[in-house]
Amino acid sequence: MSNATPRLTLELLLRFSPFDFLTPHYQQQALDSLQYVQRKAGTPLFKRGEKSLALYYLLEGKVGLGEEGTRKPMLGGSLEACHALNETQPQAQAVVALSDVTLFALERGLLERLLNWSQSADYGVVSLSMQAEEQQGHDDWLAKLLRSPLFGRLPPPHLHKLLARFEFIEVAGGEAVVRYGEPGEHFFVLKQGRAAVTLPSAYQQEPRQILQVGDFFGEEALVSGAVRSATVTMLEDGVLARLERELFVELVHPTLIPQISSEQLHRMTRLGQRQFLLLDVRLPMEYRLGHQAGSISLPVANLRTHAESLDRHTLYAVTPEGGIRSELAVHLLNQFGFEAYLLTDPPEQSPVAA
């Protein structure tokens, strides 16, 4: 098998089910989200009865379906191979690689969301955009918001409710929308204008972040219950879409923190041959008193400054001991472009003291 992993084109992806049911925008999003896996001949791919977070498709090679002695062969490129090898949950039959194989995979939850969006497009995304244009004029703030990881997980009914409850306010250039250290009461989306994110002068700060139309802010204080971690000041006159804390917590907060069990974590990384890392985001003192075996200490306050040193191909599981801090860390990591989950089950072993 070649060392170069094949990559699908959009045309080839549409030969697999159910990608042909997606609208063009979501077809491209699915293509960009695929992961590719290569396994050697003789490797067990799935066991009967197991569950997995991703759907895996045979791209190249030959696999056997069923138990040894009764296995049915399947070739990459065949009509049968247009369906996922692990379509049913729990897994209906064992699957083993009969030759060197190449698979591609997509998270089940993501595919379900893309199908949901596509099948309800007339009522979902299209009508959302039409409502925004009718109410506030034509711009692309909502389209950008819907493409974000934060809102991409929400079902259309939730988005309709959110849009109906957004309050649009005019703000002047130079006005501080939120201030460092104040309690958080609202979630904001920048509909018109630009804004700057700054910290107090006592901090050694990187160049200030500039927010553009469609960017959002204020969710961290609502996730963590803490005070505002930065000041956001308008650089010019603009318009903000504002959402009250209670509605944000009710509709948005549950989707911010994807969760994973230890069993799911090991299955996902075993089949995909991916590395994972356990992160303990409590203070170093708390970590030294006891932590899960194999976890490393990375306090949530240091995530921004240390994010560039993290490997983007690694899956990150945040241990739950930090409570709200663990939830905030998962949200921040996903916002930074990493794949992160909150580990749901308690440790199997007693905590280890440093």
Rank of each mutant, 00 (worst) to 15 (best):
H291R: 11
G294C: 08
D280N: 14
L277W: 08
T314P: 04
E327R: 12
A317D: 03
V330Y: 04
S297A: 10
T319C: 15
L333W: 02
P320R: 05
R325S: 13
A301V: 15
S297M: 11
Q273E: 14
Y316I: 02
V330F: 06
E327M: 11
S326N: 03
H313N: 12
G294P: 03
N334Q: 10
T319H: 05
D280S: 08
M285C: 11
I296V: 15
E308R: 14
L315D: 08
N334T: 09
A293G: 08
L277T: 14
D311G: 04
R274H: 09
G294L: 09
V330P: 01
G322A: 10
D311S: 13
H291P: 09
P320F: 01
V281D: 00
L277P: 01
R274A: 13
G323C: 06
M285V: 15
R325Q: 14
E321S: 11
S326T: 09
S326C: 07
I324P: 04
Q275H: 14
R288C: 12
L278T: 03
A301S: 13
R312K: 15
E321H: 12
V318F: 03
L298G: 00
L310M: 05
V330S: 01
R304T: 10
L289D: 14
V318I: 15
N334R: 12
L298Y: 00
A329T: 02
E286V: 03
L332A: 02
L279S: 00
D280T: 05
L303M: 14
L303S: 08
Q273M: 04
L333I: 03
N334K: 06
Q273C: 04
R304F: 08
G323E: 10
T319D: 07
V300L: 10
F276T: 02
L332G: 00
S295T: 12
G322M: 01
L289A: 15
